[in-house]
């Protein structure tokens, strides 16, 4: 598959601060890369270099084979960019704004009209096309920003926190949209919402303090969690102690976490690395005839991996 977006050892220093300290990654066509990291990790700075807004202190950004620089308009033509916070011209209408964006991309006449109509349609802006942008709700503003980013059908989409500040329905809508656009493009989205990564991304890169600390598919990353293979069950609180003791005695059990939920208790039985504990725990439950109302095997938790790679501590 073809690599459409590439970062080669990108660095950005602000005085003594190494905001981005050697980031390399590549995004192929059809891939949605989740770019994760705590606030201040350097996500936005990296994206600004990928779009040519900031000049890297070292390294380079390459889009469809072209090096991105402030002077290289041709490379920028291949990119659709949603800056953090989706800044817009508040005194324009979405119709006027999108027409301006089309013109800036050199799209004219009937083609421009169609491009604007299609982009507006994709994010369902039709009803507000003639309303001033500053009077729109946050969700609609974000959609205007997205429409501007996709209007010229770019090969590469760079979206900085596209769902930040949206309500759950709007988040869902934006994710659906990104998913629908991913087949023909390389997409990179930054976020610190982890469910988004699982819902949307084919790959996740976690950065911290300007460096990559983890890179893999969401499942591969989750597999690094201490919760991978853990068994979670809801049991009557009266039996909880007995179950905990019995479970701890099993081979392959690393520990047990308990959380009360009214007259029941949620037990999470952690597995040692590579140990399979679902069957032994199930047998144990059957043997004692405990009443278990929920039973699930954990695939690992991204938030736990996120925390452990960005703070050095396990959850």
């Amino acid at each position: 598959m073809d690599v459409l977006l590439e970062a080669r050892d990108l660095k950005k220093h602000f005085g003594p601060l190494r905001a981005v300290d050697g980031i390399s990654l590549s995004v192929k066509k059809g891939e949605v890369l989740g770019f994760l990291g705590p606030n201040g990790a350097g996500k936005t700075t990296t994206m600004k270099m990928l779009t040519g807004f900031l000049a890297p202190s070292a390294g380079s950004a390459i889009v469809c084979g072209e090096t991105v620089t402030a002077g290289n308009a041709a490379a920028r033509r291949r990119i659709g960019y949603l800056p953090e916070g989706a800044p817009l011209y508040g005194d324009m209408t979405p119709a006027g704004f999108l027409a301006f964006i089309a013109a800036a991309h050199g799209i004219e006449g009937a083609v421009a009209e169609k491009a604007v109509r299609d982009a507006a349609g994709a994010v369902q802006l039709e009803k507000v096309m003639e309303q001033r942008i500053e009077t729109l709700s946050k969700g609609f503003k974000r959609r205007v920003g997205l429409a501007a980013a996709i209007l010229h059908s770019p090969d590469v989409l760079i979206l900085d926190e596209p769902t930040d500040g949206l309500d759950p329905n709007q988040k869902h809508e934006v994710r659906r949209l990104i998913g629908a656009m991913s087949a023909e493009r390389a997409i990179i989205i930054s976020t610190h919402i982890l469910e988004e990564v699982e819902a949307l991304c084919s790959r996740a890169v976690i950065i911290n303090a300007g460096r990559i600390v983890a890179d893999g598919t969401p499942s591969a990353l989750k597999a690094r969690s201490i919760y991978v293979g853990a068994v979670t069950m809801l049991v009557p609180s009266a039996d909880a102690d007995a179950i905990v003791n019995a479970a701890k005695a099993l081979d392959g059990v690393a520990g047990v976490e308990a959380a009360g939920e009214g007259d029941r208790t949620r037990l999470t039985i952690l597995a040692k690395p590579a140990a399979q504990i679902a069957d032994p725990v199930g047998d144990l439950v059957a043997k004692h005839g405990w009443h278990v109302s929920q039973f699930s095997v954990d695939g690992g938790r991204l938030d736990d991996v996120f925390r452990s790679v960005t703070t050095g501590k396990a959850a």
């Binding site: 600004k48 041709a74 033509r77 800044p87």
Partner: peptide
């Protein structure tokens, strides 16, 4: 102030 400079300068238009 509004951040639109980033939008403007990442369009394929010469400075």
């Amino acid at each position: 102030k509004s951040g639109t400079l980033e939008l403007l300068l990442t369009l394929p238009v010469n400075t």
